[in-house]
Computed example of a mutant assay.
Amino acid sequence: MRLCLCLWVLAFCILASDLGALADVRSLISKDLFEQILKHRNDAACEGKGFYTYEAFVNAANSFGAFATTGDTNTRKREIAAFLAQTSHETTGGWASAPDGPYAWGYCFIRERNNPGAHCTSKDWPCPPGKQYYGRGPIQLTHNYNYGQAGRAIRADLINNPDLLATDAVISFKTAFWFWMTPQSPKPSCHAVIIGQWQPSTTDTQAGRVPGYGVTTNIINGGKECGKGSNSKMENRVGFYQRYCQILGVDPGSNLDCSNQRPFNA
């Protein structure tokens, strides 16, 4: 009886270990693939040289248990590709004739460029003197209310220490995953959209918002890029996504752009 119990416990531990391995983002994107996807992030011209490491990415991703663990393998790969594509656009250092193409230059920058400003826009999160809440990190998190909410979620004081997003890679990645995983009404989360969980309402359908990668662009920057026909910023996001899907060996799906979608807050 004791032997049977020991064997059962051993089998359970092995199964739990296997499930843990399957749930870990590393089972879908190895360090070599990460390096291939973000090929020039450590270029000498990039501010982010040495900052955005694979280890920090994995550490932060595993803090959000549902990321890249929901659905079949292709769905999970698409989520990784979509997340890295959107954040690559936000941090890109590429240009049209860049070596290896413009979509090999994601994660080049940590901070928003060109005099970004303070972005202390919400009274709900009082801003200490001298602190600024411009874009930082993979998602280029902006505004004090986003810093406040993200900090509360990941247990970091980002209101008093906003530059943690530019000095601590794990925290920086965690804020990007927080934004990706968290719905902010009337917007669904990017996570829910890319895994096929989000179902458009009648209002969404009337606004041209249909399931697919394009809605994640609408969530992130729809007011400036969506419902305006073809434009370079929106197309840049699609270009990153298509390249990453190819590297990960997964079909990108349909409805990749938001050219005919009205923004959520319109």
Rank of each mutant, 00 (worst) to 15 (best):
Y213D: 15
A207W: 05
K39F: 05
S230F: 11
E225K: 09
P102C: 12
I110M: 04
D204M: 10
L5K: 10
D163M: 03
E47M: 07
L10I: 13
K174F: 15
D18K: 15
V9K: 14
E35C: 08
G137V: 05
G101C: 00
K39I: 11
E55M: 11
Q242E: 04
K123Y: 03
N42C: 12
C245H: 01
P252I: 01
N221H: 06
I195S: 03
G227L: 04
D18I: 15
L19K: 03
G229D: 02
N144V: 04
K233E: 07
P99Y: 02
D72I: 13
R113E: 08
D204F: 06
T182N: 01
Q197K: 14
S172K: 08
S172D: 03
F173H: 06
T73Q: 04
N74K: 12
D24S: 09
P128S: 00
G50L: 07
C6K: 12
F177I: 05
E225W: 01
R26I: 14
N74I: 05
G117P: 02
A176Y: 12
G249D: 13
L38V: 11
H119E: 03
A45M: 14
S230Y: 07
N160K: 13
L15G: 14
F173W: 07
L38Y: 11
R78L: 12
A44F: 05
I80R: 06
C190R: 06
A45K: 12
W125S: 11
I14D: 09
C226I: 06
F177V: 08
A104F: 04
G93E: 09
C226P: 14
I14P: 13
V170P: 14
D32G: 05
I37Y: 08
N231G: 06
V238K: 02
R262N: 13
Y145C: 05
P211Q: 07
N146H: 08
I220P: 04
W198S: 03
Y107G: 15
N265H: 14
C245L: 00
A192H: 02
S201N: 14
T73S: 09
I154A: 04
G137H: 07
R41M: 12
P200R: 02
N115I: 10
D257P: 01
T182C: 00
T53G: 04
R152Q: 13
S259A: 10
R262H: 12
W178K: 01
F173N: 06
G48M: 06
C108I: 05
G151F: 13
Q140I: 01
S63A: 15
Y213P: 10
A23L: 13
P138A: 02
Q261L: 00
I139V: 05
A169E: 12
S27G: 13
F173A: 06
L256F: 05
L158Q: 08
A82Q: 00
A192L: 15
V215G: 01
G208L: 11
S230R: 13
A45W: 09
T91R: 01
L10A: 03
K233P: 07
S232A: 09
K228T: 01
R136S: 00
F67W: 06
